[in-house]
């Protein structure tokens, strides 16, 4: 999956490209920005390579956008490429958050700011709810999946079962129920 030599970017180019994506993506939806930049604009990956990277990124722990960046960076320039890509995608947001955090520390006692932040926090809950419903549309309409959604939700939200416990108890059952059907030998 190595790109052609003429098309192979330097580490600085990788960092800059991912930092631009990290800085442009205001309000989430990073994966879509990544696809546009890597596949359409830079032609560093083709559509299929991108989807394969996304598939791994979604299955393994960690943020999808960061995971895809690491895989893309590795394909472009090995370990250093992966580090450049991950640093590029993460750093702009961290700098922005440091600024927001400084402002928050300075103004959080101010009643106007506190009220506005309460409104923002409520809106953020709505956003998270919408994202959950959108990503889970398929799972909510399938009875077996819905059972696992509700079971996980109830265990974590109301019985405060710890996350590792939930994963070790529920995941094996869910995966075995989705096990591949045995194919008749050809």
């Amino acid at each position: 999956m190595q790109p052609k030599a003429s098309n192979r970017p330097t580490l600085a180019q990788i960092f800059t490209a991912f930092a631009r994506i990290g800085a442009a993506s205001f309000g989430g939806g990073l994966v879509a920005y990544l696809r546009d930049a890597l596949v359409d604009e830079k032609k560093w990956m083709d559509e299929e390579e991108f989807l394969a990277a996304l598939e791994i990124g979604q299955t393994l722990p960690g943020l999808n956008s960061v995971n895809v960046s690491i895989i893309a960076g590795r394909h472009l320039a090995g370990p250093l490429g992966a580090i450049s890509a991950a640093a590029g995608i993460i750093l702009p947001g961290v700098l922005a958050l440091v600024v927001l955090g400084l402002l928050y520390d300075k103004f959080r006692q101010n009643p106007d700011v506190a009220a506005a932040l309460a409104g923002v926090a409520a809106a953020a809950v709505g956003l998270l709810l919408q994202v959950t419903l959108k990503i889970g549309a398929k799972q909510f309409s399938n009875l077996r999946d819905l059972f696992f959604v509700v079971a996980t939700f109830v265990m974590v939200a109301f019985f405060h079962v710890s996350l590792p416990t939930v994963l070790f108890l529920v995941a094996p059952v869910a995966i075995i129920l989705c096990r591949p059907k045995t194919q008749p030998k050809p």
Binding site: Q58, T59, A124, L129, V150, A151, C178
Partner: peptide, 26 residues
């Protein structure tokens, strides 16, 4: 494929618990 399909509803359940966790405060 089985791992992916099996894990999907658990992720959604955890995200709902996330809505509950932040919503309880906000």
């Amino acid at each position: 494929d089985a791992v992916q399909r099996g894990m999907a509803p658990i992720t959604i359940g955890l995200m709902l618990a996330g809505v509950h966790a932040v919503g309880k405060t906000a």
